[in-house]
Amino acid sequence: MLLDGKTAIVFGGGGAIGGAVAKAFAREGASVFLSGRHAASVEAVAADIRASGGKAQTAVVDALDETAVERHTAEVAERWGGIDVMLNAMGFQPVQGVPLMDLSPRDFSFPIATWTSSQFLTARAAGRHMVKKDSGVILTLSASPARLALAGTGGFGVACAAVEGLSRTLAAEFGPQGVRVVCIRPQRIGETMSEADFPVPRDEFIGVLEGMTLTKRLPTLADVANTAAFLASNQAAAMSGAVANLTCGMSVD
């Protein structure tokens, strides 16, 4: 198994991406510590992992709360002798679909401040424990607008680009101490979208998104989860400061 004997922390573990990645980590042999703002959703994912024979524990942690993040990572590191893998998949709701000339400063800055700050807090906390072992993998998360010129993305595209920039800086600073940092950039995932998300029927909108990719499909949760497990493993030991492009060719590097 790719992650046999590893200890992994997943912030936002009760969400679609966080839950899928946590299950993949556990399937590959890791002991997974899931956290989120709501106990019920996190525990539901942990229950599925345990039912499949995996190891999972949960905690209620706000990934924007510096004290809570530091406490949680310290507790996991102390109990299990360190942290090997960390992913922050915390969910948030940016304002999109509004032209910049009509967007309020608060709505513009919200995703930038929220997403970038949370990725910084969790990466810093986990990295402090990883460098003590001279090993570890920090996985960050962005999205296709990081490298696209798309109208209506508000501050979200800026936030995604900022996270990719942060990931490179983290990789430069942690790399000499044995810690790798890789950002995962998916396109919109069809399984996470509902009718309420769009002014047009869901299938119609998904068809538009699929048509914008080179492969004429969208990434799946399984695509993201399997890639995360690979990146966290020693098989990706030569990767750091990189972005794993899972946009199905919508954005190219």
Rank of each mutant, 00 (worst) to 15 (best):
A16H: 04
P111M: 03
P145T: 06
C248A: 15
S31I: 05
K23E: 15
S117Q: 14
E70R: 05
A47R: 15
A89Q: 02
P219V: 05
S144L: 11
P219K: 09
G53D: 13
A74F: 04
G127P: 03
I112T: 09
V61C: 11
E164M: 14
I9P: 02
V85D: 04
S104E: 11
S194M: 12
A26W: 07
R106T: 03
D134M: 13
L170Y: 04
F11K: 00
T220S: 15
S31P: 06
A151M: 12
G18N: 05
V45T: 12
L103F: 09
A238M: 14
T247P: 08
A77Y: 00
R71D: 15
A149I: 07
S118W: 13
H38S: 12
A143M: 12
R188P: 02
A59W: 04
A237F: 08
G97C: 10
L170M: 13
A222D: 15
I83H: 03
A125Y: 04
E191C: 07
D84N: 14
S240I: 05
G175Q: 10
P99I: 11
L231G: 00
P105E: 02
T73K: 02
S142F: 07
V137N: 01
G249M: 14
V21T: 03
F108W: 15
G155Q: 10
A236C: 13
